[in-house]
């Protein structure tokens, strides 16, 4: 097998290849949208049924008060660590192979976060009052309880979401400019706005690079804290098996683990269907595989560790 690592195609082709899905939409795309749309519609139907008939139609009962909802929440928030965290780390350590991976990872982050953040609202007994979770100056000046990890979740998730969106959009500015230059009509107008007047001057590049460097440093603690805080949802409650000090790192390790896995899957799908074999190369998968292995070992240790605590305490 011919090893063609780092053998990039010529720039013109890069532009064509990468812009192809943007410029031409096949029927398959609409099919996909319709399929996912059905999933969303079904979810909404179930949610409204649950609200109309009563929360009891869910399988929730003592002592499983959160069940599937919280599993989903933790899962999606975990997945969201794929991106920003990975691309930030890779950016900071200047891993050259990262470039094709990062965009994909960052997108996963933003969307997974948005999905994850829905679950705390979906799982409420009275979701129509969800805004009481948010700190807003109500007419009676009742603020949420800042001691509650659920309110911490609100802040953590929002901070992370804003950070991730910036992290995704900043490096995309030059690419928006490319699309702007290559398209016409409405699309051109939209991308002109998004490109924020990018001209590709060295000064602009320099500023972008510095901004990304700052963002990469800033986003890391936020990402770690998000999942630590998610873990606090559990460890703050004196429930046996939940009240454990390892929950923070345990959750973060688990999150990165599942995030990388999600990333690998997403990349494989993109590579296959958007014909990006030239860009997403085996070396990327190999490197991600190594990372996955490391995280798996780390996570495995935490799982073992959790049993240890129970074992000590009988």
């Amino acid at each position: 097998m011919a090893r063609r690592e780092h053998a990039h195609p010529p720039p013109a082709r890069i532009n064509d290849d990468l812009l192809r899905p943007l410029m031409r939409t096949s029927w398959r795309f609409y099919l996909l949208v319709a399929a996912f749309g059905c999933v969303v519609a079904a979810g909404l139907t179930f949610w409204f049924t649950q609200m109309y008939l009563g929360f009891g139609i869910s399988g929730i009962r003592w002592p499983v008060f959160w069940g599937f909802y919280v599993t989903n929440f933790v899962f999606w928030i975990g997945i969201s660590h794929a991106g920003t965290l990975i691309s930030a780390i890779l950016r900071l350590v200047n891993a050259g192979w990262r470039r094709p991976v990062t965009r994909c990872a960052e997108v996963i982050t933003v969307f997974a976060l948005m999905i994850g953040a829905l679950f705390p609202i979906i799982h409420l007994g009275r979701p129509w009052l969800a805004f009481w979770l948010f700190p807003y100056p109500s007419e009676r000046l009742i603020w949420p309880n800042f001691r509650s990890p659920l309110v911490w979740d609100f802040f953590a998730i929002n901070t992370y979401l804003i950070g991730s969106v910036l992290f995704l959009l900043l490096p995309a500015i030059p690419d928006f400019a490319v699309v702007r230059d290559k398209s016409t009509g409405l699309r051109r107008a939209v991308y002109r706005a998004l490109a924020l007047g990018w001209r590709g001057t060295p000064k602009q590049w320099h500023r972008l690079e510095s901004a990304m460097q700052v963002m990469a440093v800033a986003i890391l603690p936020v990402a770690v804290s998000v999942h630590t805080i998610v873990s606090f949802d559990f460890s703050m409650a004196p429930v046996p098996m939940w009240q454990s000090t390892i929950f923070g790192p345990y959750f973060v390790a688990g999150a990165i683990f599942s995030g990388i896995a999600a990333l690998v899957i997403a990349m494989a799908v993109l590579r296959r269907f958007l014909h990006l074999e030239d860009y997403l190369q085996p070396v990327h998968f190999q490197n991600l595989g190594k990372l996955l292995l490391v995280m798996a070992l780390l996570w495995g240790y935490f799982v073992f560790n959790e049993r240890l605590v129970t074992y000590y305490g009988n």
Partner: peptide, 19 residues
């Protein structure tokens, strides 16, 4: 608003949710 968090937190299991 029915987060049921308190029921998870109460070690005496004396909180009841209206399903």
């Amino acid at each position: 608003i029915g987060t049921r968090y308190c029921a998870n937190a109460c070690p005496y299991n004396v909180r009841f949710f209206d399903f």
